[in-house]
């Protein structure tokens, strides 16, 4: 066996390791059995159960609301942060933008819990979750927007200024249209990150409010039924669609986000 076929076989195993578990989840969502153990027959029953599960529907509505609101605010703030970091090279702001993204999620979760209860005296609920989600989404938007700006020719902005454009006009007519794909990609990323977040939501959620990941968590902790597989499959589909749209706007988004 030469080197290349050796590499190929290990890599094929790693790809299988990555995909087989998810395929199993999807396949069993159509399985006509309560147990996720063996294939019995095809059914759409678990999707029917899912769409009749009021708690789950309410959690989905909450998740979407939180994702849209925190996505919009984080996009506005993150775009500003991205521009500020690129243009003014501030010292503290890059640190403040990156750290909530880089540190273990649990730390942001518990420090916000402490802050909401002890200092703001806030009743935990939708608002506390939204505030928390904005905090970690800002960083991702800022990274994408900044990457977009870094790839641009500075002389465009100088030209606009030389032609007599005010800073606001330069922004509105030159900068913003140019960074638009980055902004949209950042918004879609915030949306997916918010919809998918479990850890930070877990610490900032109050009594009586639930989101999709929290609902999935309590289901797999208490009683596993293929309804979890069904909701997982739909959630995968939603995230996948968002990511495909995002990658159309900024092909480097995915890799930028991972770095």
């Amino acid at each position: 066996m030469n080197r290349s076929s050796w590499l190929w076989s290990i890599s094929a195993l790693v790809y299988a390791f990555l995909y087989v578990p998810l395929i199993i989840v999807v396949v069993y969502s159509f399985n006509d059995s309560r147990l996720n153990a063996e294939w019995v027959g095809f059914t759409l029953n678990w999707y029917r159960v899912l769409f009749n599960d009021e708690q789950m529907i309410r959690a989905a509505v909450n998740s979407l609301t939180i994702a849209v609101v925190s996505g919009l605010v984080a996009t506005a703030l993150g775009t500003m942060a991205g521009i500020a970091i690129h243009r003014y090279k501030p010292k503290l702001l890059p640190f403040m933008v990156i750290t909530p993204v880089a540190m273990p999620e649990i730390l942001l979760g518990v420090s916000l819990l402490l802050f909401f209860i002890q200092v703001m005296n806030l009743t935990l609920g939708m608002l506390s979750i939204i505030i928390a989600h904005i905090t970690f989404c800002i960083g991702f938007v800022a990274i994408v927007v900044r990457a977009r700006l870094a790839g641009m020719d500075e002389s465009i902005f100088e030209a606009a200024r030389d032609l007599g454009a005010t800073p606001w006009q330069t922004f509105k007519l030159v900068t913003f249209p140019l960074i638009m794909p980055g902004v949209i990609a950042g918004a879609l990323m915030s949306f997916t990150l918010s919809i998918d977040d479990f850890v930070i939501t877990f610490f900032t959620v109050g009594v009586g409010v639930s989101t999709l990941p929290l609902q999935i968590y309590s289901m797999i902790k208490i009683a596993v039924t293929p309804e979890v597989n069904a909701v997982s499959t739909l959630l995968m589909l939603l995230t996948l669609t968002t990511i495909i749209i995002a990658s159309k706007f900024a092909p480097d988004t995915l890799r930028g986000a991972m770095k």
């Binding site: 990555l18 578990p21 479990f198 999709l212 797999i220 997982s232 995968m236 995230t239």
Partner: peptide, 25 residues
């Protein structure tokens, strides 16, 4: 292909292993 599974929810990826490692699997 490496990033794509990463796009599915974190809990779903953990749950998948509950199925695979479950006693009847």
């Amino acid at each position: 292909l490496v990033i794509l599974p990463f796009a599915s929810n974190f809990l779903i990826r953990v749950y998948a292993w509950m199925i695979i490692l479950g006693p009847q699997s």
